[in-house]
């Protein structure tokens, strides 16, 4: 299994996908950061809390989890696009071992995205207000938000990979993840907030300590995320072991 994970790690860092996704995620998070810093300056000038502004900036880095999930999906689906998945299956020993190895590597990639988001998020909190003459106000909450941002990226990457195994097509998997994250889950949250709190990306809002109402307590949010990942694992495993490869 160690050899297989080693090989999958090599695949994951081959090509430009990983750093393009990291760059794109960083760019979008920075855009949000500048927005929060600018609006925060006005809020502080009006008597608002500097700590709230710092926390908003930290929270802006949650967006990296979308890119972590895309990296997981692409890790799997690009192999279907090129047919490489056939060799991966042949050399893995079994399809179950390949699923486990890819999921492990996707999780490791998610951790890399999470570290990037949490690290740059902390730097953004410290320096984003500087052009406006505002100082950062780090609190325990700020660090909990950054820890949540890290955790969401770690958990989003295997989610993307498992959806990749189910969908098997890169464009469809990417479109599905973006639609779920940006359209479906927020839409359900607007229409039925009680039910939406159990959706994966809404449960992640609890983890990065969003201030919206109708969110699950953090332990329950982790349980909901675990439930989605478990269901996706069984669906992916079932489909991978029963469908023809290429």
């Amino acid at each position: 299994m160690r050899n297989l994970v080693h090989g999958e790690l090599r695949k994951a860092v081959t090509g430009r996908t990983w750093w393009i996704l990291m760059l794109a995620g960083t760019f979008l998070c920075l855009l949000s950061t500048f927005g929060f810093a600018s609006e925060g300056h006005k809020a502080v000038a009006a008597g608002g809390s500097a700590a709230d502004v710092t926390n908003d900036i930290a929270r802006a880095w949650m967006m990296m989890f979308l890119f972590a999930s895309l990296s997981g999906a692409i890790l799997v689906t690009r192999e279907y696009g090129t047919g490489t998945v056939a060799r991966s299956v042949l050399l893995a020993g079994s399809r179950g071992r390949l699923l486990a190895a890819k999921t492990a590597v996707a999780t490791a990639a998610g951790a890399a995205f999470g570290l990037l988001a949490a690290g740059l998020g902390a730097l953004a909190c410290a320096f984003a207000g500087a052009p406006y003459g505002d100082s950062a106000a780090f609190t325990r909450e700020t660090w909990l938000i950054l820890a949540g941002v890290f955790a969401c990226s770690v958990l989003a990457a295997p989610w993307g990979a498992l959806l990749g195994w189910i969908v098997r097509n890169q464009v469809s998997a990417v479109a599905l993840l973006i639609t779920l994250t940006l359209v479906v889950d927020p839409g359900v949250q607007a229409l039925a907030p009680e039910a939406a709190q159990y959706l994966l990306t809404i449960a992640m809002s609890s983890v990065y300590r969003d201030v919206k109402p109708d969110l699950l307590p953090v332990p329950w949010a982790f349980a909901a995320i675990a439930g989605w990942l478990t269901a996706a694992w069984f669906a992916a495993r079932r489909l991978l072991t029963t469908r023809d490869i290429v």
């Binding site: 050899n3 297989l4 080693h6 090989g7 999958e8 790690l9 090599r10 695949k11 081959t14 090509g15 430009r16 996908t17 690009r78 696009g81 090129t82 047919g83 490489t84 056939a86 060799r87 991966s88 050399l91 893995a92 290429v246």
Partner: peptide, 22 residues
């Protein structure tokens, strides 16, 4: 039908499978 790992070089492609095979 089996294509190479996206973005790989000749040696990089072989190293991926060398690693998988141990």
């Amino acid at each position: 039908a089996i294509g190479p790992v996206t973005g790989s070089t000749v040696r990089g492609e072989l190293l991926v499978w060398t690693a998988c095979l141990g």
